[in-house]
Computed example of a mutant assay.
Amino acid sequence: MLWILVLHIAALLFWGACLLYLPALISGIARQPDAIEQRPDPFDSIIRFIFTRVATPAALTAIIAGTLVFLINHTVTLWLMAKLTLVVGLVFVHTMQGLLLLRLEARNGKPVQLWCLLLALAAAVLMGAILWLVLAKPPLEAWL
């Protein structure tokens, strides 16, 4: 069971790093589109590679391993439900970053910098809240 927990934490570290790095990368490329060489395949970029080959597999691994951890431990508490709700928020941020990537690749001139900032802030707040819930395990039943 311990190796599943280690896998869950490692995948979370990769996923969280990608969620914080991708908005900065997208924003930087959107500011200087001429700084990047034109490739024959427009879908061959470092942003797409990180999103599809690192962030998405890390997200799926983290979610599957986390699900296995609480299924094996038979843990069903209110703080865990709150954590899973925040994880849904991270999945939403991940999806929005994918849409932002598509907007950048379309090069339709729509601004992306504000969305990058908002998504990075949302990811940081959600990850901080999840970390607090996991480490503190507050008695949320008293709040109901």
Score class of each variant (00 low, 15 high):
residue 1 M to F: 06
residue 1 M to N: 04
residue 4 I to T: 15
residue 5 L to P: 00
residue 5 L to Y: 13
residue 5 L to G: 11
residue 6 V to F: 13
residue 6 V to K: 01
residue 12 L to N: 14
residue 12 L to D: 06
residue 14 F to E: 00
residue 15 W to F: 14
residue 15 W to G: 10
residue 16 G to M: 14
residue 16 G to C: 14
residue 18 C to F: 08
residue 19 L to E: 04
residue 20 L to F: 12
residue 20 L to G: 14
residue 21 Y to R: 01
residue 22 L to V: 13
residue 23 P to E: 09
residue 23 P to F: 07
residue 26 I to M: 14
residue 27 S to T: 09
residue 29 I to H: 09
residue 29 I to D: 00
residue 29 I to L: 00
residue 33 P to M: 07
residue 33 P to E: 10
residue 33 P to D: 04
residue 35 A to I: 02
residue 36 I to E: 01
residue 38 Q to L: 05
residue 40 P to W: 04
residue 41 D to Q: 11
residue 43 F to G: 05
residue 45 S to R: 10
residue 46 I to G: 02
residue 49 F to Q: 14
residue 51 F to W: 13
residue 51 F to M: 13
residue 60 L to P: 07
residue 63 I to D: 06
residue 63 I to P: 00
residue 64 I to K: 01
residue 64 I to S: 14
residue 67 T to H: 07
residue 67 T to A: 06
residue 69 V to T: 13
residue 70 F to I: 15
residue 70 F to C: 03
residue 70 F to P: 04
residue 72 I to A: 09
residue 73 N to A: 11
residue 74 H to Q: 11
residue 74 H to P: 00
residue 74 H to R: 14
residue 75 T to I: 03
residue 77 T to S: 15
residue 78 L to V: 05
residue 79 W to K: 05
residue 80 L to W: 06
residue 80 L to I: 13
residue 81 M to W: 11
residue 84 L to T: 05
residue 87 V to T: 13
residue 90 L to E: 07
residue 92 F to K: 07
residue 93 V to F: 13
residue 93 V to Y: 09
residue 94 H to M: 09
residue 95 T to V: 11
residue 96 M to Q: 15
residue 98 G to S: 12
residue 99 L to R: 14
residue 100 L to I: 03
residue 102 L to W: 05
residue 102 L to T: 08
residue 102 L to S: 10
residue 106 A to Y: 04
residue 107 R to D: 10
residue 109 G to V: 07
residue 109 G to R: 08
residue 109 G to T: 07
residue 111 P to C: 01
residue 111 P to I: 06
residue 112 V to P: 07
residue 114 L to N: 10
residue 115 W to M: 12
residue 116 C to M: 06
residue 118 L to T: 03
residue 118 L to H: 04
residue 120 A to S: 14
residue 120 A to W: 07
residue 122 A to M: 08
residue 122 A to V: 02
residue 125 V to D: 08
residue 127 M to I: 15
residue 128 G to K: 08
residue 129 A to K: 04
residue 129 A to P: 04
residue 129 A to E: 08
residue 130 I to F: 09
residue 130 I to G: 02
residue 131 L to D: 04
residue 131 L to I: 10
residue 133 L to V: 13
residue 134 V to C: 01
residue 135 L to K: 08
residue 135 L to Y: 04
residue 136 A to K: 09
residue 138 P to Q: 10
residue 140 L to K: 10
residue 141 E to D: 12
residue 141 E to W: 07
residue 141 E to R: 06
residue 143 W to M: 11
residue 144 L to H: 12
